[in-house]
Amino acid sequence: MNDDPSKRRLGRGLAALIGEMDQPMSEMASRPSVNADRKVAIDLVVRNPRNPRKHFAEEDLQDLASSIRQHGIVQPVVVRSVADGRFEIIAGERRWRAAQLAGLNEIPVIIREVDDRTALELAIVENVQRADLNPVEEALGYEQLIAEHGYTQNDLGEVIGKSRSHVANSLRLLKLPDLVRDMLFAGTLSAGHARALIPTSDPLGLARTIVAKGMSVRDAERLAQNNIKAQSNPVLETKSAEKDPDTLALERTLSDSLGLSVTVNHKGTGGGKLMISYKSLEQLEEICRLLERR
Rank of each mutant, 00 (worst) to 15 (best):
G92P: 13
W96M: 14
R97C: 05
A98L: 06
Q100L: 14
L101H: 08
L101T: 04
A102V: 09
G103P: 02
G103D: 07
G103H: 05
L104G: 00
N105G: 14
V109Y: 11
I111E: 15
R112Q: 14
D115S: 11
D116C: 03
R117N: 06
T118G: 01
E121N: 09
E121R: 09
E121Y: 13
A123P: 04
I124T: 14
Q129T: 15
A131N: 15
L133I: 05
N134R: 10
P135Y: 02
V136K: 09
V136Q: 06
E138Q: 13
E138N: 06
E138M: 10
E138C: 04
E138A: 14
A139Y: 09
L140Q: 15
G141C: 08
E143Y: 00
E143F: 00
H149M: 01
Q153N: 10
D155S: 02
L156S: 05
L156F: 06
E158S: 14
I160N: 01
I160K: 00
G161D: 07
R164M: 11
H166V: 07
A168I: 05
N169W: 01
S170G: 12
S170Q: 12
R172Q: 12
L173S: 03
L173D: 07
L176T: 11
D178G: 06
D182Y: 08
L184N: 02
L184S: 04
F185Y: 11
F185C: 00
A186C: 02
A186I: 00
T188P: 03
S190D: 03
A191F: 01
G192H: 07
G192F: 02
G192I: 01
